[in-house]
Design a protein around this nucleic acid. Sequence first.
DNA 1: TAAAAATACTCCATAGGTATTTTAT
DNA 2: ATAAAATACCTATGGAGTATTTTTA
Lengths: 301, 301
Amino acid sequence: MDLRRLRYFVAVAEEASFNRAARKLHMSQPPLSNQIKQLEKELGVVLFERTSRGVRVTEAGELLLEEARRIFVQMDQTTRAVRRVGNGEVGRLTLGFVPSASDEALPPILNDFRERYPEVELFLREMRPNLIVQRLHAGQIDAGLLYLPLEDPALESECVLREPLVLALPEGHSLADEESVELGALAGEPFILPARYAMMPGLYGQVIEACQKAGFSPEAVQKDVWLMQTIVGLVAGGMGVALVPASLRNLRRRGVVYKFVGGLSPTVELGVVWRREERSAVLGSFLEVAKHSFQKEARDD
Amino acid sequence: MDLRRLRYFVAVAEEASFNRAARKLHMSQPPLSNQIKQLEKELGVVLFERTSRGVRVTEAGELLLEEARRIFVQMDQTTRAVRRVGNGEVGRLTLGFVPSASDEALPPILNDFRERYPEVELFLREMRPNLIVQRLHAGQIDAGLLYLPLEDPALESECVLREPLVLALPEGHSLADEESVELGALAGEPFILPARYAMMPGLYGQVIEACQKAGFSPEAVQKDVWLMQTIVGLVAGGMGVALVPASLRNLRRRGVVYKFVGGLSPTVELGVVWRREERSAVLGSFLEVAKHSFQKEARDD
DNA sequence: TAAAAATACTCCATAGGTATTTTAT
DNA sequence: ATAAAATACCTATGGAGTATTTTTA
């Protein structure tokens, strides 16, 4: 019993006439009669009482009519629902992110995403970058937000926010009054360095690279500091200097001044990461929004 | 989205492989791939992630799989239900019958019918023959049980019980001691006659006809008596004699004796009546049982 | 390279069209 | 006599088959 015949049946039943139903179905009457006859044969049941001025459904036809309508609304609802899931308009998505992401990058992404895809359930989990990678592999999160680059063939990433590194100095520091500081002037200064993770140069890599380009290796007075807040705290305590993402300036803290780095200032990229082979539609939706909101940010600069 | 494609989809999803699914569906792999592709195109949604060692449903596919299964059970239940209604195994039927029918004819019919079609709701209404005809025309009852014949082109009837007419005499009557009575001997006797209805000779017609064949017209001391019990009561009261269906002998009443009529005894037919153009399946079931139970009765004689 | 899916084509079954007949009012 | 459904026959779309190529682990 296929749906075309069921459609034909409903049309004939509703029009109480093969001719009218055929017209409504944009076909001629004979094949319609044929299809109904085949449906009746298949069911082993007479569905219509044929009279000379039309047609009337039998009791069995009455039942089939009701059920057919029910089946059609179910089919319709199913197609809609499947399309919505397929287009990533509905579903769930778990996102892991490093705390710094919530300063600048995350809020606009979340706003845009919630507006465009209100029926996607979003689960947010703050975590360390290495955990993000691990959980991505395990399929426990669908996307991550962390500092690029990332050397992992199974993962793909794209920049969401590019920001300059700025120098964080203790208030009383000798360079604290300069307008801009050359990175080379920091050779020999005690540095507070962010955490480094295997296979993920990330922020640590950018800081080291920037110093090396300026001709020196930073002297680590403290390393593997996980939270940016902590780094800034240590700077405020006079333990040393640090290179931090510019958005950290939002974190105004007594005893710390931020200085732009002279010359071609080093930058760091916060990016979204996902499993390369993952094809889920909600992820697609999320990535679309994330990339789009990056371009918007870029234009705002 | 037609059901064949949905079936194919379910098979592929369950087997997690186009090849295995094709084998299970008794078809080759390429057209199966085609059908799935067309389904995906129609929905605008990717249903499978194709890998080199098989296939895995996407999130949208997962949803479609669930819904497809639901649709299939619904289709299945619908076909079953429609078949049952179409075969007259389920439904409702209202039957009108004259009181005499409940003596002999009705009980075995009802027993057989309830046994074979336990899911047909049966409504029974005792009524006069003219009402039976009227209600049949009005569609308020589906079948009737009354004394034949019936001259009505819109109705069809069939005999369910043929019984001889017997003579009911008051106990003290001069013929009460005879073994068998010739009908001719009743000429001039005061007769109690059953009711007559327009277009329905019925019992009245048979009595008159029997007497006429015996060479006389019955002398009506009382006519248009509706209930057989009343006729027998009047006989017991000595008001006259009557010809009644043999099953009335079940009604043993003081002051009445029943005598077989000699020669070729007149008979009367109780029959089932229905609208000629009515094609309902439950009616078919009922008529089948009613006719069958008549043949059984006939064999039992 | 081996296993599975995709592509390219060929064929035929069947849905649909046209012409006509049958049926019932 | 007329209107509607059934029948007969024809055409063509599209589903299914075979052979082959592409893809990925």
